[in-house]
Amino acid sequence: TVKDYCTRGLHETLSYRKRAEPARPSQVTGEVEARIIALACSEPPEGYARWTVRLLTRRVIELNILESVGRETIRTTLKKQNLSLI
């Protein structure tokens, strides 16, 4: 902050800078989110008592809901809707 103030001035230091590249759009749209939630609310696979984030991630890829997705994306999608897998 001090370096920015010395080189660019007070106004430039306190204002937000434009990003060099625009932010990537989210993979999870409303339709995809609804399908993930419906999957999480369904019966777990044979041999499992409940869904886990890893199981959901694998199933989302198997069902071609998303081509590739990380566990964290699935977790935050569920958390956003206050869903617990317990």
Rank of each mutant, 00 (worst) to 15 (best):
K3L: 12
L14R: 02
V32F: 01
T73S: 09
E31V: 13
K18Q: 11
V53Q: 06
T57L: 13
R58T: 12
V2M: 12
T77E: 05
A40M: 08
I74L: 04
E43N: 08
L55H: 14
Y16R: 13
S68L: 14
C41G: 13
V60F: 02
L83K: 02
S68P: 09
V69K: 01
P45M: 10
I86G: 14
G9S: 02
L39I: 00
L83V: 03
L66W: 09
P22T: 09
Q27H: 13
S42F: 03
R8I: 11
T52H: 01
A40G: 03
E72C: 10
G30P: 02
T13D: 01
T29G: 11
C6S: 13
L66C: 02
K80S: 04
K3I: 06
C6W: 11
R8C: 15
D4I: 08
S84V: 13
S26P: 03
L66K: 00
T76G: 06
L10P: 09
I37W: 00
I61N: 03
I74N: 03
R75Y: 09
R17E: 07
V2D: 03
V69C: 04
L14F: 10
V32E: 00
S26F: 06
Y48G: 05
E67K: 12
E72Q: 15
I36A: 08
L10E: 13
L63Y: 00
A20G: 08
R54Q: 12
T1D: 08
G70Q: 02
E12K: 08
R24S: 07
L55F: 09
L66P: 03
K79P: 15
V69Q: 01
I37T: 03
H11T: 15
R24A: 13
R35E: 15
V69S: 02
E43I: 15
R75I: 15
P45E: 09
L56Q: 07
A23Q: 10
A40K: 02
L10Q: 14
R50N: 04
E21C: 10
S15R: 15
V60N: 04
K79M: 12
R71Q: 14
I86P: 15
R24F: 12
R8M: 11
P45Q: 12
R19M: 14
I86M: 14
T57I: 05
H11K: 15
Q27S: 12
S26Q: 05
T29I: 07
L83M: 07
L78W: 05
P22N: 14
V32A: 11
A34P: 01
G9I: 05
P25Y: 11
I37A: 04
W51A: 01
V53N: 05
V60L: 05
N64F: 01
I74F: 00
N64I: 01
E62T: 09
R8A: 11
R75L: 03
I36C: 10
R50W: 06
